[in-house]
């Protein structure tokens, strides 16, 4: 085993070199075929992408990321709130989005709890309630066993109705959530003392990527209620939310890169969590290789195209 650094990346064995060699020679083969004007079966392309994602998972590549301003804004907001502030985290996603946004949900919860904020969980996706179990198990039960349900955090669960739910809670929380997910009455939950509506919250964070999601939170809660709103979303929708930043949206974690930036920044600020799971940072290894492969595909595809076009002109 060899431990060292390549291009500033911490590499724990020679596997990464092997991976790059295999993928590199494969791409050269593809380029050679393109130059000879030969087509490639789509399954070869599929196999390529499979290998370039799977192989880096077998080796450990660790990166550190510098948080971009839009990500740092969320971190700074949680950091600047006084302990005991009420932070609502809405799980608006399903298993399909989970690899991207579950790491965000986990690290944001960890950050809010380490700052001793009161965390209110809810979901606009029914599947959010299933995904919330992951955070309760992997973050709260594992790292914060002293935090109590109803006092330090509360799980209000899912409500059907999308925007209809938001339209009610922006002015009356109890009307929509008369109890928490375990049927404990709203008035008996210590954490919710003094919370009449979303306007009484210090920060709202929506984690999602579908509909309803962060956009609906901005339209139905953030703007009408003047509630500071931030979010973490799947990469597919992240560019669409930039127009709301910074006036209507406090900050945004976009895709797995946003999550990795937040994880890096959090670990840097709280060294006691140095050995916490960092799924987003780990995912950036395969992500990097896959991006190189896809860019190579585009280049090779274009070489093929320009060759054929030139041939066509000659004819």
């Amino acid at each position: 085993m060899w431990n060292g650094h390549i291009w500033g990346m911490k590499v724990h064995n020679l596997g990464v070199i092997l991976v790059l060699l295999v993928i590199g020679s494969g791409l050269l083969w593809l380029l050679a075929r393109a130059l000879r004007g030969k087509e490639v079966d789509r399954r070869v392309i599929f196999a390529f992408i499979f290998v370039s994602v799977a192989a880096p998972l077998l080796i450990t590549m660790t990166f550190t990321f510098r948080a971009t301003p839009i990500v740092e804004a969320v971190f700074d907001k949680i950091e600047s709130l006084p302990p005991g502030s009420h932070v609502l985290i809405s799980y608006d996603f399903d298993p399909a989005m989970a690899p991207e946004v579950q790491p965000m949900a986990n690290v944001l919860t960890r950050h809010a709890l380490v700052r001793n904020h009161k965390v209110i969980f809810m979901c606009l996706f029914a599947t959010g309630q299933g995904q919330l179990n992951v955070t309760l198990r992997d973050v709260i039960a594992a790292d914060f066993p002293d935090k109590l349900d109803g006092i330090d955090y509360v799980n209000l669960g899912y409500k059907a109705g999308n925007e209809g739910v938001l339209n009610v809670i922006v002015s009356d929380f109890k009307k929509m959530f008369p109890t928490d997910v375990n049927t404990v009455p709203f008035d008996s939950i210590e954490l919710l003392d003094g919370i009449k509506s979303c306007k009484d919250l210090d920060l709202v964070i929506s984690i999602g990527g579908g509909l309803p999601g962060l956009k609906e939170w901005i339209l139905f809660v953030g703007d009408p209620g003047g509630v500071p709103t931030a979010g973490g979303v799947a990469a597919v929708v992240a560019p669409q939310l930039y127009p709301y930043y910074p006036r209507q949206l406090l900050g945004l974690l976009g895709g797995v890169k946003g999550a990795a930036e937040y994880e890096s920044h959090f670990r840097e600020r709280y060294p006691q969590f140095d050995d916490m799971p960092t799924p987003a940072i780990i995912m950036m290894g395969p992500q990097t290789i896959a991006h190189i492969v896809i860019m190579s595909f585009i280049v090779i595809g274009n070489i093929l195209y320009f060759r054929e076009r030139r041939k066509g002109r000659r004819v």
């Binding site: 690899p99 991207e100 990469a235 597919v236 799924p279 395969p286």
Partner: peptide
């Protein structure tokens, strides 16, 4: 691209 690759990474993990 980044989003779709992430989902595949999730399943392969």
């Amino acid at each position: 691209v980044m989003g779709r690759i992430s989902l595949l990474v999730g399943r392969l993990t």
